[in-house]
Computed example of a mutant assay.
Amino acid sequence: MSERPLCEGRVVVVTGAGRGLGRAHALAFAAEGARIVVNDLGVGLDGTPGEGGPAARVAEEIRAAGGEAVAHGGDIATAEGAASLVRTALEAYGRLDTLVNNAGFLRDRMLVNLEEDDWDAVMRVHLKGHFLPLKHAAAYWRTEAKAGRTPSARVVNTSSGAGLLGSVGQGNYSAAKAGIVGLTLVAAAELGRYGVQVNAIAPAARTRMTERTFAETMAAPGTGFDAMAPENVSPLVVWLGSAAGAGVTGRVFETEGGRITVMEGWRPGPSADKGARRTPSEAGETALKLLAAAETPGAVYGAS
């Protein structure tokens, strides 16, 4: 007897799904029986207008393989674009079960060269582009829960190692991706009562954003396994976006190739309490003693 597809009957929205990781996620969900809303604005790597139609092409690819998909070309970093994204799912399929926030682009600069527009643009697409779809999807799920139809809803956000450790030349991107982790934790805490689980991934894969970084990393000789293929990340995303991951929420997973790591965030380390106010010199002396007993943080990507 064949195994039932993991996401049979579920309706899944994937933002930034015209290429790279988002496309891989959309195809993987469709292969597991989900009906897909493929969102992509069709902009270039830096967020400027580019060739149109990537969402429609991926939706057609899914349909050609026997799946169900519709395209959405709206800007999910606007209130109307995010609202229309949720409406598209409801109008096409009558429900929404999973939201995968993936859309993003880069405008890398060292901090002294980083323009305000570069900061705002990256914050807008990554952080606001996570918040607004999440807000509108959550409003729908809350309404369903209050009507007695508590969903088995899932959100998978996309952070980055840059957001967890920092990355030289990516102050805007690192800050946005760190913000996504904070948003994930709050959303998981707030939305659990409505049947919504919220997690985040920090993926490493070869996409338009990382093709230079991973250009030399190809399939290992004799194995045929390309560790940097975006398709390696999607199985975890599909599982997190399915009903199978019941009880998993508020967590961050780093994923690359065949490796999955549960990331453990800020938690109290060495501590000292004098019970009274310290002088600056005493505070410094105490801080140095505590630092000597603390774990060394991971290195910032690109730091010499």
Rank of each mutant, 00 (worst) to 15 (best):
R259S: 14
D97M: 01
R95Y: 05
A283G: 13
F131Q: 04
D108L: 09
V252M: 07
A145Y: 03
S234I: 11
H25M: 12
G258A: 15
E116T: 15
R267C: 02
T286A: 15
I36V: 13
A89I: 00
V233A: 07
G179C: 03
A293L: 14
G20C: 12
G224S: 08
D40A: 10
A145S: 11
N157T: 06
E295M: 04
E116C: 07
R208T: 09
G73R: 10
W119E: 12
R4L: 14
E116P: 08
G47A: 02
R206Q: 06
E8F: 12
A287L: 13
R251V: 11
T184L: 02
G302A: 12
T98D: 01
R212A: 15
K128Q: 12
I180Y: 04
D226C: 06
I36H: 02
V122I: 09
G179H: 02
A92F: 02
R154W: 01
P280R: 10
G20A: 13
T261K: 15
L96G: 00
A64R: 15
T296D: 06
L240F: 11
D40R: 10
S159I: 04
P203I: 07
Y194S: 03
R208D: 15
G44N: 10
M1G: 14
C7W: 01
G74P: 14
G182M: 01
G169C: 10
V58T: 13
G73W: 06
E115H: 15
A276S: 12
R212T: 15
P270I: 08
V11K: 01
P297D: 01
E211T: 12
R109G: 05
